[in-house]
């Protein structure tokens, strides 16, 4: 990911701590499409996703002190905030597991049109990567990563033994990494 155009990672962190609004603008410009994509994928609702995106950037701004570089890069931290905030909203809507699965098949990302591929991954291509996963692998990753289902919940709702869910999910992630690193 090339985001060292104007700021180094350390400068971004310092800028956030110093409450530098230019740094905030830079982070927004560079990362809002990725974070918004995660939030939309979790909630499958653009209106709700816009509110959550705002909350997420305010959290990034206000909780910058809590970023711990030992645990990963700034982007990793931002992603975690986006995913966790969106999943909290999803839970508060108390969607049933069955609805979550339905939402996956209605995925707004798959209807073409509004999809904007982030420039830095243009060469990868959305479907080029995801087409190389089996439907089951995609479902497992979607439920676990984007819907925040536990492996126990996945086992129950897909009626697959827990051990099998664990193995298949792990294989799905490994497969995903192989594709991403080709």
């Amino acid at each position: 990911m090339d985001y060292h155009v104007t700021y180094t990672e350390a400068e971004l962190v310092q800028g956030l701590h110093a409450r530098d609004q230019k740094v905030f603008g830079f982070l927004y410009d560079h990362y809002s499409p990725a974070l918004y994509g995660v939030i939309v994928k979790v909630l499958n609702d653009h209106g709700l996703a816009v509110d959550v995106l705002q909350d997420v950037f305010l959290k990034i701004w206000r909780y910058a002190e809590q970023y711990n570089e030992e645990k990963g890069r700034l982007f990793t931290w931002m992603l975690n905030i986006a995913r966790n905030t969106a999943i909290d909203v999803l839970r508060s809507k108390s969607y049933k597991l069955e609805q979550k699965i339905q939402n996956i098949t209605d995925d707004v990302h798959l209807d073409g049109g509004s999809l904007t591929v982030y420039p830095s991954v243009d060469h990868l291509g959305f479907s080029k990567v995801l087409d190389k996963l089996t439907k089951e692998q995609r479902t497992l990753i979607d439920l676990a990563y984007y819907k925040g289902c536990t492996q126990e919940e996945i086992s129950r709702v897909l009626d697959i033994p827990l051990g099998t869910v664990k193995t298949r999910l792990r294989n799905a992630i490994i497969q995903l990494r192989v594709i991403l690193n080709k």
């Binding site: 990911m1 991954v121 990868l124």
Partner: peptide, 25 residues
């Protein structure tokens, strides 16, 4: 790798959000 994975789903949010956020901060 996870960062690259989520980038696959990147979408531009509506244009007015950035200004709204900057006003808030």
């Amino acid at each position: 790798d996870r960062e690259r994975f989520v980038q696959l789903y990147a979408m531009a949010p509506p244009m007015d959000i950035k200004d709204r956020l900057l006003n808030i901060i």
